[in-house]
Structures are given as structure tokens and as C-alpha cells.
Design a binder for these strands. Structure first.
Length: 946
RNA sequence: GCGGGUAUGGCGAAAUUGGCAGACGCGCCAGACUUAGGAUCUGGUCCUUCGGGAUGGGGGUUCGAGUCCCUCUACCCGCACCA
């Protein structure tokens, strides 16, 4: 029987659909296993061969677990809201909804071609009202809750109001924005608007004015991780800082728990480190300084309170509230000038410039509480408004940045730590003895930190404080294609949550979704914005991370109308056992979704502390790029391409490099990749601008039409990312059409370890193709099934069970490349002994089933089975076939292998030593003398030291 | 600058805890079958002065190091004035 991939795949797709092989219930008596992929943005470009890498790995694992008797939840959906989808829609002039639906259809077809075992009945789309109803519902809950730091739990906002009503806010320890203290009486005296403003400081979803990354070209605010090098990640437009009123999520309330609970999850160390650095916990002290001639106190945060006697100046962030109050008349002009300068500085300037110190003096002075010395107060760009208190005490002797500042503005430097006894210590190390520091003199730094904190608390001017680098998440986008906020404003501008029964608030249709500078597109819809009762709607929409922060819960029970997922389903599925995706979401998506999950856990809607038990990151699939050199200057009005072989080092800047579609290039990826006649023809057909160009090669100058024979235009090959602009994108559909889906799956796994970056090169795919053909040929001849029903020999069974064992352990440790190798080894060994026995090959098909689901399913049918192989039981290892009677031991002399010996497997160490010493080879080495030492490792090796 | 990672044939890589380095595959070479081969099959394929030498360089621990420690180099990723 001929192997025909297309027919097999078509048959299997139909069979799986008819039999509903991958359908899972919401609850079951079987043990559950949840295998999740990071769902994709359905971008217009479609999938390239890099995308399925993680999907294939997770699918193999899901299929394996399913065959082991688990109920496996393995869903897929689409992150269809957000900037990329909208940007794409704007570029193409198609409505985002239409574009999104088209893209999803394409993705779905591409995914189905690769044979994933998704339960498509559970597909979610973040842009579907039945989905975002619950995104809005969770946001509403966040708005209606605050975080109790004492109980470490989210609590309803009404409870906070009762506390305010009973005792004001002085006793309460809550996660909050800065808020002045008030008493119960004062609370009662406040107007509704004032009360609302105060509550905003406590809500987990709240509004505040903040400096944001404003991107004029996109007309919207971007998150820090959407900004790269001062440019927008999407489109590469400039980004500047601008104050705006925005919605925020108080993720900082959960900072400590997000940090602590990392110990309970299995992420890679680097992933955990990235997250904990992002959270950025530091222990320090909050200190209040008097300001000379003012009633206000200056509040600073420092991790080095011990250095207070070396604080020769203070620095405020330029945006600090006190700046306008304390600046003296004399200094006002220079401060104003500096503020103008700061405002003019875009992120681009700040990033691209070499660190240059800037600042200005306010004319005001703080008072050192311990020696009453006057400390000048400056403002400077290097102090950040949003970290700590936006103000520092600067200690030039013990901080590199303060030192640079002091030097630039000629501020005195007072040495306060003697590090002479620690020769290798740097300025950052907390080592040395205090000097010039009054009561701290002679103390070690770490002791001095303790001591100063005690003194500060005694004086009532400071306390120990823990700070986090992590900021609250900006949740507003001035965009169309996102979830509308379930928020309305009354005539006083007080924000109210919409009633639960009125959700979802459906995103209204808008013809022209282009942003209008400074205003969200939805603001154009007056009838939608202005409600009959005089209330108005929020016109911003939520960012991409909103839907993706909880989508994995919806998969558990995607059709539920009453809840984001039913209690029974959540109780059964609990959490994600294995989450597979790229590292690019290390700090964004992963932190947000952990935060949302913890919030829902606090409210009793979920039952596990963490959403993802185990995280696996697939490495980037790299491509090969090839480029050719075009002279910057034309010769006689003609473009001249020059062979890479004719360009000497250092000469490159006289040329522009242009990428060439790699399939035009001969030997692409090698050191001697080149364009031949055929390649040149294809190139000028694709880029007709160069029809008249000259191609300069070692064989002489040619026009495209003269180019022939031996002439080679050498190209420059490089390892690069896969990208449209590099003309090296390979569509998995094409690979599937040519080699079959199983071959693509096997090949992607065979390339190397999942977590490593690796280059794609279709040319080496035939290795696994050959394996599949050989595997197929083991079952069939031209007449059909050709297996024998003879009993298997022990030797054959040993090959089988050794393979099962290796593959089982390797799947468990996600080493899929070695699984494929082992399949090849098994087949090679069986072929070598001409085995074609059903007793061996039937279990082998099952082993291969997770990897090559199509071919194995088809063979299974041919073997006479009516139900899917993917519901069959994964073969178990029978150790009795693995028992060895003898082991080939390497015999080493002084650690160098000198020979081998077949020795009985059950021999004791003493026997082994004796047998080894009796060997001729060993006797020769010993030459009559006794060995110094003999090391015997059972089953491994024997080493004789002479 | 800080933090993390990687480095093994011409190429992708293997070597679970320190124990036979290069499994498996690509490519290449030779042969067989063939009208033909981008099909299939078989064999070979690190270097070597045949002692041995090789896992980016140098040093160390050990009977024994790709694996552990120190150090240097190169590349990749993340963060970027975090007080």
C-alpha cells in the first residue's frame, strides 16, 4: 500500500471529527490534566514554522497523558483584542472585527493541518462578548474591592466604607495610593465626590493621573513593555511622557504574594529571577526631614539610612509636589528652565544619550534631624517620581549616581564609610566601618543600618519600609478594539460600576476606528457615551492583557452563561498542569494573570493559589537570512550589485545590504551561498526595480540577461529571526503539503531541545521523512498489511521495552528530540534483524501516536481497530525484558579506557575486580606490580590505578 | 552597568546523578539496484607521526570532568538611573 500523507490526513480529520475524539467533559472520575498553550494573536501574517514549536510539544504531552488515562483539557483560543489586531485593521482599511474573524479562520485552518488534539468546542476569543462579559465582570469586582494588608486578602469596598465611617482611615493598613489621614467625623463631613476620590485611593481598579508613555502616532498610551528603546514595539513610533487620567490595576497590593508564591511553582530559574527582579522588593527606611522655613515635611526612601551623615544634598523628582512650594524666588527661573527641559525630553532622548547628570537647585534646605545641619534640596531627572517617595537623600560618598551629581554641581562629599579593610569591596557593597557619623562611628555598616532605624523610630521621624519596583498596571487604552470599561460617570464625575445584570457592555460598532489625538475612538459615538439620565460612559478600552489574564479559566467551562466558569468545572480542573509558551511573556502576561488568579482566589472563585503549576518555555525558531550588496553610488546611472567575495573587510559601508528570498539562493546558510543565473532571474522578477542593474562577480560584470554559466554572485548568509521583511518566512502549510503533518511535527521536535533557540532549515527535514516511510513500510507491502503473527523473541522484546522506557522518561522531562531519536533507533535495530512481527510493531505504533498522530491513527485502523489510537493505552514497560545477563564494562587504566570486558551482570564488585585483574590487557599494564587502587562502579566501568 | 543563559564534528545535536564523548539525523564519500534519480538499499565519514590527542581558552578538585569550582573570551536574552 502506498503511503499518501494527504489521504491519511484527510481521513483522520474526518474520523476525529466524527468520533469526537478530543472532546472533554467539564468533570470526570478520571484524574485530570490541563495542558495549555499561550493562545496567539491572530495577526494578518498567519503562522510561520516557528509558531507551532510549542504547540507541537504540548500536543505530544497532552496526547501522552490522554493515553495514560487522564482526562486531558487541551484547548486553544485567540487573543483577538488589542493593539496588533487594531493596527493591522487600520493598515488594511478593514474593520477590526472582520479582519480578526478572517485571521482566526486562517489560523484555525493552519492549526488543524498540523493535527493538534484541541477540543475546539472550547475555543475562546477575547473579543467575543460572551467572553469579555466576564473580563468586564472581573474588572468590576476589582473596582469594588480593596486590599487588606493585615489579613493579606481582597475585601469588599463597603467594608472599607464602614471602617471609615466608624474610625476614619488612621488604623487601617491597606494597599493604597497616597491619601491624607482623616477621622470618622471628617469622613461623614465629606461630600460624595470627596468620598469617591478617597475610595479611589484604595480600590484595586482605580483612576489616577499619571505620567504615561504617550505615543502620538498610535494615539494611545503604551505599557512599559510595549515600549522598546523609546519607540513603540508595534510600528516603532516615538513615545513621550505625558500626564493623563488613567485606569490602573493595583497589582502592587499583591507584590509580596506574587514574590512568595514563586517558590510553589515550577518555572525555570531564569523565569523566576526575571519575575522577582521585576517585582523588585527592597527593604529600607522612610525618613521625614524638616524643611527650613516650611511646615511640610520632606519624605524620602532609602535602603541606606546609615549614611545619613554623608547626605550633603537632597534630590526630588522634577514632578515632585513640593517643587513649586519650596522653590525660592531667586531659584525659580533656573528651576522653571530645568522643568521645561525635562518636559521636552522624550524617552528617546533619555535612552539614547550617554548618562549625563542634570539638575537644578531649589534654594530650599532640609534639616538633618541628628545634627541640625542644613542640606540643600535639588531636583534631578535621575530621581523617579513613581519609585519610593520620589525623593532621596543623596550620599555622594557612597552612591555612584549621587557622586556624579555632586561632582557636576560641586557639592561637598563627606566620607562616611572606611572600606580600607575590605580591599575588593565596591561602592555598592554594604561593607566597612562608619566614620564621621556621630553615634554610628566605628560600627559595621549592617549594624549601623539597624541602629539608625531604631533611632529614627525613637525620634518619630522614620520607619522601616519595604518597597517594590513594580508599578501598578496601567489599564487604559485610547483605542477602539478592546473591552469597554463597565464604568459610568455621574454629573459630578464620580465613577460607578455598571450593574452586573447589564453586562456585557458590548463594544459598539464604529466605522472609522482611527484614534483622534488625545481621545479614544469611542468618544466619537455621542449617543453611546451620553446616557439618558445624564451619566456618561468611559470611552477608553482595556489593554491586551485583560482578556489573557484569565482566559485559561474560561476554557474549563466556556459556554457557561451564569459565571465565568461553573464551580464544579473549576473544582475539577483546578489549575494548569503544564503551560507552554515563549519567554517574552515572562513579566507581563504571567504576572498579570497570576495577580488576577490570586484576586479570584481571595474572592473564593478559584481554588488554587497559582494558575500555572509548571511552565515550559520554547526557544525561538530562528531563520537564515541571505543578503546581497548594492553599491551606494550608482555607476553611469546604473545600480551595481557586487559579489560578497569581492568586498574586503572595512569596505562594507560603501554598500547597502538587501535581503534576498532564501529560496533563490544556492547553498543558503553556508559560507559560500550564492545566486546563480536562475536566482538572479527570480530576483529581478520579484524586484523589477533592479532589472537594469549590473551584477559584478569574480567572473566579470553582467546584466541580468547576460548572467549565465559559471558566474556566481556570492551572498551574505546570517542567522536571523523569521520575518517577512527578511524574506525567510516558511508557512507550515507548505511543509505539510510537501512532507506531511507528521513529518513537520517530528522534524520540529527532532531539531533540538525545546527550550533552546534553533535555526530552521527545511533541507534536513528528510531524515524524519525517511524514518516515517520506513516505519510505514514495516507494516505494508503492495498488497496491504504484511505483519507476521509470529511470537516475538526476547531480543525483539528487549528493543521494544528499552525504547518504551526511554521514551516514557524522555516525554516526562520534555526531551522530545531524544524521543524521536529513540524511535529511529528502535526501528533501525528491528530492521537489522528483519523483524516484522505484529507483537512488536503494534505497541510501537502506540508509542509513536503522540508524535505522529495521523499515520499512527491510520495504521491503527488498518490493524483492525474501530476506535481511535489516541484513546488507546500507552504501552507500559515490562522490566523483565530489560534484564541483562552480561554487561560490557569499559576497563580503564588511570582513567583512560584501554579495553572492554563482557562480565556477568550479577557479579559483585569483588568478583568484577578479580576478573578485571585477570585480563591479559590489564596484566600487561600492571607488568607484575600490584595496582594502587581499583575502582568498580556496578554496571558502569572499572578503573585500575597503577 | 546589573541579572540570567549558552559554547561539543562541515551542520542540528546526544551523553538523567561526575563513569566508554560525538547516539540519532543532515551533509559528504564510495558502492548496489536502475533508462533515470532530489527514490530505495549497503558501507564509510573528528584529528593523528598510531604513542595518543580532541567538548570556546587557561587553571583547579577527583581514581575519573562535556558535566563540579576558579578565571578569561565570545555570543544570546532580560532589565535599564529603582535610592
Amino acid at each position: 500500500m502506498e503511503l499518501n500523507y494527504a489521504e491519511i490526513e484527510a481521513w483522520c480529520k474526518q474520523f476525529w471529527a466524527d468520533q469526537q475524539v478530543y472532546k472533554v467533559p467539564n468533570t470526570s472520575v478520571k484524574p485530570k490534566y490541563y495542558v495549555l498553550d499561550m493562545f496567539p494573536y491572530p495577526s494578518g501574517a498567519g503562522l510561520h514554522v516557528g509558531h507551532p514549536l510549542g504547540y507541537i510539544a504540548s500536543d505530544i504531552f497532552a496526547r501522552y497523558k490522554r493515553m495514560q488515562g487522564h482526562e486531558v483539557l487541551h484547548p486553544m483560543g485567540f487573543d483577538s483584542f488589542g493593539l496588533p489586531a487594531e493596527q493591522y485593521a487600520i493598515q488594511r482599511g478593514i474593520h477590526p472585527e472582520k479582519a480578526t474573524n478572517e485571521n482566526i479562520a486562517r489560523y484555525r485552518a493552519q492549526l488543524d493541518n498540523i493535527g493538534f488534539s484541541y477540543d475546539w468546542d472550547r475555543q475562546v476569543m477575547t473579543s467575543d462578548p460572551s467572553f469579555y462579559k466576564w473580563t468586564q465582570w472581573i474588572f468590576r469586582k476589582l473596582f469594588l474591592h480593596w486590599y487588606d494588608n493585615t489579613k493579606m486578602i481582597a475585601r469588599p469596598i463597603e467594608e472599607l466604607e464602614s471602617i471609615f465611617s466608624a474610625e476614619g482611615n488612621k488604623k487601617i493598613d491597606a494597599a493604597q495610593s497616597s491619601c491624607p489621614a482623616f477621622s470618622s467625623d471628617e469622613w461623614h463631613a465629606y461630600s460624595p465626590k470627596e468620598k469617591s476620590d478617597i475610595l479611589m485611593n484604595y480600590r484595586l481598579a482605580y483612576r489616577k493621573e499619571a505620567y504615561v508613555n504617550w505615543c502620538e502616532a498610535l494615539g494611545t498610551v503604551l505599557a512599559n513593555d510595549e515600549v522598546k528603546d523609546g519607540l513603540s514595539e508595534r510600528g516603532g513610533y516615538p513615545v513621550e511622557r505625558k500626564p493623563m487620567t488613567q485606569w490602573f490595576l493595583r497589582i502592587t497590593a499583591y507584590a509580596q504574594r506574587l514574590l512568595d508564591d514563586l517558590k510553589d511553582v515550577e518555572y525555570s530559574d531564569s523565569m523566576k529571577i526575571m519575575q522577582s527582579n521585576w517585582i523588585g522588593r527592597s527593604t529600607g527606611a522612610q525618613v521625614f526631614f524638616d524643611i527650613d522655613g516650611h511646615n511640610e515635611k520632606l519624605e524620602i526612601y532609602t535602603t541606606r539610612a546609615d549614611t545619613i551623615f554623608g547626605a550633603t544634598f537632597m534630590v526630588l523628582a522634577p514632578e515632585h509636589d513640593l517643587v513649586s512650594t519650596i522653590t525660592t524666588k531667586d531659584q525659580k527661573p533656573s528651576i522653571d528652565q530645568y522643568l521645561v527641559y525635562v518636559k521636552s525630553r522624550s524617552e528617546v532622548d533619555r535612552m539614547s544619550e550617554v548618562k549625563e547628570v542634570t539638575g537644578a537647585f531649589t534654594g530650599a534646605y532640609a534639616i538633618n534631624p541628628f545634627n541640625d545641619e542644613k542640606i540643600p534640596i535639588w531636583i534631578g531627572e535621575y530621581v523617579l517620581k513613581d519609585y519610593g517617595t520620589g525623593a532621596i537623600m543623596a550620599v555622594p560618598a557612597d552612591d555612584a549616581r549621587d557622586m556624579a551629581f555632586a561632582k557636576k554641581f560641586s557639592i561637598p562629599i563627606v566620607e562616611i564609610i572606611d572600606k580600607s579593610m575590605y580591599p575588593g569591596a565596591t561602592i555598592e557593597d554594604k561593607l566597612g566601618k562608619m566614620i564621621n557619623s556621630d553615634f554610628l562611628n566605628g560600627m559595621e555598616v549592617l549594624d549601623a543600618i539597624e541602629e539608625i532605624c531604631v533611632r529614627l523610630e525613637q525620634k518619630g521621624i522614620g520607619t522601616k519600609k519595604i518597597n517594590f519596583k513594580m508599578r501598578d498596571a496601567n489599564c487604559s487604552r485610547q483605542r477602539y478594539w478592546g473591552e469597554p470599561f463597565p464604568i459610568i460617570y455621574d454629573q459630578d464625575g464620580i465613577a460607578h460600576a455598571m450593574e452586573e445584570k447589564d453586562l456585557p457592555l458590548v463594544l459598539p460598532y464604529l466605522d472609522d476606528v482611527k484614534p483622534v489625538s488625545g481621545k479614544a475612538p469611542l468618544a466619537k459615538l455621542h449617543d453611546w457615551v451620553n446616557l439618558p439620565n445624564g451619566y456618561t460612559r468611559e470611552t477608553d478600552t482595556m489593554p491586551g492583557f485583560a482578556g489573557s489574564s484569565w482566559y485559561f479559566l474560561r476554557y474549563m467551562d466556556p459556554h457557561n452563561q451564569e459565571a465565568f466558569a461553573g464551580k464544579e468545572a473549576i473544582q475539577y480542573w483546578q489549575d494548569v498542569d503544564l503551560y507552554v509558551g515563549g519567554t517574552e511573556h515572562a513579566v507581563g502576561h504571567l504576572l498579570y494573570s497570576r495577580f488576577w488568579h490570586k484576586f479570584l482566589f481571595d474572592l473564593g472563585y478559584t481554588f488554587s493559589k497559582e494558575p500555572y503549576k509548571r511552565l515550559l518555555n520554547q526557544g525561538m525558531m530562528q531563520g537564515i537570512s541571505e543578503s546581497i550588496y548594492l553599491k551606494k553610488e550608482k555607476e553611469n546611472g546604473k545600480n551595481v550589485f557586487v559579489s560578497r567575495s569581492m568586498i574586503s573587510k572595512g569596505d562594507e559601508d560603501r554598500f547597502i545590504t538587501l535581503y534576498v528570498p532564501i529560496q533563490y539562493v544556492q547553498d543558503y546558510g553556508s559560507m559560500k551561498s550564492y545566486l546563480d543565473t536562475e536566482g538572479i532571474k527570480k530576483y529581478i522578477t520579484y524586484f523589477p526595480d533592479y532589472t537594469d542593474a549590473i551584477f559584478r562577480t569574480d567572473q566579470g560584470d553582467f546584466t541580468a540577461s547576460q548572467f549565465s554559466g559559471e558566474a556566481k554572485l556570492y551572498t551574505q548568509g546570517e542567522l536571523a529571526k523569521i520575518s517577512k521583511s527578511l524574506y525567510n518566512v516558511i508557512n507550515p502549510d507548505d511543509v505539510v503539503a510537501e512532507y506531511g503533518a507528521d513529518c513537520l511535527r517530528l522534524f520540529e521536535m527532532f531539531l533540538g531541545p525545546l527550550e533552546q533557540a534553533k535555526p530552521w532549515d527545511t533541507r534536513s527535514i528528510d531524515g524524519v521523512g525517511k524514518f516515517l516511510r520506513r516505519f510505514w513500510a514495516s507494516f505494508f507491502n503492495e498488497n496491504g498489511l504484511s505483519l507476521s503473527n509470529e511470537q516475538a523473541t526476547d531480543e525483539e522484546l528487549k528493543i521494544l521495552h528499552k525504547g518504551i522506557k526511554k521514551i516514557t522518561t524522555d516525554i516526562e522531562r520534555y526531551s522530545f528530540n531524544t524521543c524521536v531519536s529513540q524511535c529511529m533507533i528502535m526501528l533501525n535495530e528491528l530492521k537489522a534483524m528483519n523483524c516484522n512481527k505484529r507483537a512488536i510493531f503494534e505497541p510501537m505504533v502506540k508509542v509513536l501516536a503522540p508524535f505522529a498522530p495521523f499515520m499512527s491513527e491510520f495504521i491503527w485502523k488498518e490493524l483492525g481497530y474501530k476506535t481511535s489510537i489516541h484513546k488507546a493505552e500507552f504501552p507500559l514497560v515490562d522490566e523483565k525484558y530489560l534484564i541483562e545477563t552480561s554487561i560490557t564494562y569499559p576497563i580503564s587504566i588511570n582513567g583512560k579506557k584501554r579495553g572492554t570486558a563482557d562480565l556477568p551482570a550479577n557479579a559483585t564488585n569483588q568478583d568484577l575486580e578479580k576478573m578485571a585483574l585477570e585480563m591479559e590487557m590489564v596484566k600487561k599494564w600492571l607488568d607484575g606490580s600490584a595496582p594502587k587502587k581499583v575502582i568498580v562502579v556496578q554496571g558502569r566501568m572499572i578503573n585500575i590505578v597503577i
